[in-house]
Design a protein around this nucleic acid. Structure first.
Lengths: 348, 348
DNA sequence: CTGAAAGCGCTAACAC
DNA sequence: GTGTTAGCGCTTTCAG
């Protein structure tokens, strides 16, 4: 098994076909200037030998690898992996290969080695598909700005001269809040994500702002910080029921925590949505099958990945063509609200 | 932004430091035979220029890339992405880079282009992290056997002369069944995964065999095929209640479908686990927060990925060292049962 | 200790 | 139409 035969090279093909490597090169690149007879012969040899041109050698010559570096974190969670799903699909479509790196932690801050390794592999562009958490964007200004390889960042506070693709978390939170208010809920608690996450802060801000705007206002006892997990959602809900005795609904910053919260509501013998309305965030596939089915904010993480790839390639192309320095911009994707039973107190 | 400056090469470093490229090469490879003075100077220049050696050029020379190809499918599902999580971690640890390909469908059968592309990138080994579905392993015997690059397959029926890492799905199903029988359930229904999946068949076989062994036997009306989704689990449960009127429990082939089934049980006003016991499979993090908490079969998909990487590298190494032809073997990981409320009828 | 030459697999540019 | 030369960025011999 697995004898060390080594690679079939263009040289080998050339010698077997009795031509120069050049001619073989012309054939594999579909150049016109080869006699159809020679071409046929070479193609046969290629087939026979199972020859596959080396992408590495080509990358060296062309100064272009058609390879993108993808940096992610937390693949064991469904959000990052959906985004990666979109990235692989779009990259495939565009004919780019992907080199994947996963950070050991979301808030990893020593990113230069990762970056260097991607450079070492001659990637044409980088997609930084890690959420903004704590200080994990501090390096952006230093290192990335003077890099000459295009980088597109995902899910962070937009900045000048940086290409960012993000989902409008704030808007999502606002939609959820309007809905709860529409349903007549007035004592709306909040289970936030960990507040060193930019996304968690955005979602929470929507909750606050909506309460202010509705003339209700909020108190510190009416929210609790979670860590995205169902377990933390359950704990947070328990605490919330203690602190906020006349609470009639909860905006939960993701669906997993919402599941934990729902479990607590059941344990207390309260009815959803009559006694307590629940709205989640993310629209994970399971949320439609919670008991009761969860109202939640839907956002398309798959598409986030797709758009990021497309944007990256667009920048690569324009740099290659030496076009006028591209002005880097942010792209914001808008979420939608999915209304289900968990918040539908006023039946139509 | 992004001026086309081009790469800093070893040549550049050499000329700035006033030495030959050779000497620079010695420094970046930590060779001893360089005067500490020259070394220092070169290191400074490297630092200053932000020089990063080209992994591509090195791969060409060494006939070795320290790169693994990973082929996956269904990243939007939590299983495959957990496995990928384990793969990235183990690869990082071992100093290997990863080239990622995702198949458009689980049962994609035209895999030669994928394979060829990985070859083209000089990967040292391949991890085929796609579950065995329908005919998607038919190519294995032809193409892969005479490839001289090591391939490790995940989650498939073991075969001779092929390296496979898998989880013992059958055993997992058996454990779940013993537990249900221990709890006094006798009319155990089954919601299977799609039966063109090898894993689904294994889990179902455990259900059948256990019923036979217990002297209960099974009928065609006591199981329904799902497609892994919660929606299909709900539909299957409804059907099952119609077909199998004295059913007292269900072995569900994954946790998502179990969630759907639970929703139906609630809708019928039945009690879990008193009227109906439910056992799932996979132990997704949310399952502990279902209502009631789900008894399920736990298996470590993260570890599956880790082991696959380690095994791949082991094979690569022994081929390189020209050791006696390695005998390829399967590695089976054993699952565990996590007992929670959904099946605990006999309180201790 | 350091450098020059050759070559990994391939292609651009130029011959013929 | 086809072959030759040079070189992408690097390392391995082998000289000095």
């Amino acid at each position: 098994m697995y004898t060390k035969t080594g690679r079939t090279t263009i040289k080998k093909v050339a010698s077997v076909a009795g031509v120069s490597t050049q001619t073989v090169s012309r054939v594999i690149n579909n150049r016109p200037d080869v006699s159809s007879k020679t071409r046929k012969r070479i193609q046969d040899v290629i087939e026979e030998l199972g020859y596959q041109p080396s992408a590495l050698a080509r990358s060296l010559i062309h100064q272009r690898s058609y390879t993108l570096g993808v940096v992610t974190a937390g693949l064991k969670y469904i959000g990052p992996s959906c985004t990666l799903n979109g990235i692989t699909a779009a990259a495939e479509e565009a004919g780019y290969a992907l080199i994947l790196k996963e950070l050991p932690r979301f808030d990893a801050t020593n990113n230069e080695p990762i970056f260097q390794e991607l450079v070492s592999h001659h990637v044409d562009g980088i997609i930084w598909a890690v959420q903004e958490v704590r200080g994990n964007r501090s390096w952006v200004n230093q290192l990335a700005l003077d890099s000459d390889i295009p980088i597109v960042y995902l899910t962070m506070e937009p900045r000048e001269n940086i290409s960012v693709v993000l989902i409008n978390n704030y808007m999502g939170g606002c939609m959820a809040m309007s809905h709860l208010l529409d349903q007549g809920y007035r004592h709306i608690g909040h289970i936030s994500g960990p507040l060193d996450w930019w996304e968690a802060r955005q979602r929470m801000k929507a909750w606050k702002d909506a309460l202010e705007e509705a003339g209700i206002g909020f108190h510190d006892h009416s929210w609790v910080e979670g860590n995205w997990s169902s377990a933390s959602g359950a704990r947070a809900a328990e605490k919330l029921f203690e602190q906020y005795t006349d609470m009639d609904s909860i905006l939960v910053a993701n669906d997993q925590m919402a599941l934990g919260a729902i479990q607590i509501v059941h344990q207390k013998g309260l009815q959803i949505p009559q006694d307590i309305g629940i709205v989640g965030f993310d629209n994970i596939p399971e949320s439609a099958f919670y008991w009761p089915a969860l109202t939640t904010v839907n956002h398309d993480q798959y598409n986030l990945g797709r758009v990021a790839v497309q944007e990256t390639i667009k920048i690569i192309e324009s740099v290659r063509q030496g076009l006028t320095p591209i002005s880097l911009k942010s792209i914001t994707l808008e979420p939608t609200l999915v209304v289900r039973d968990s918040s539908l107190r006023l039946k139509a």
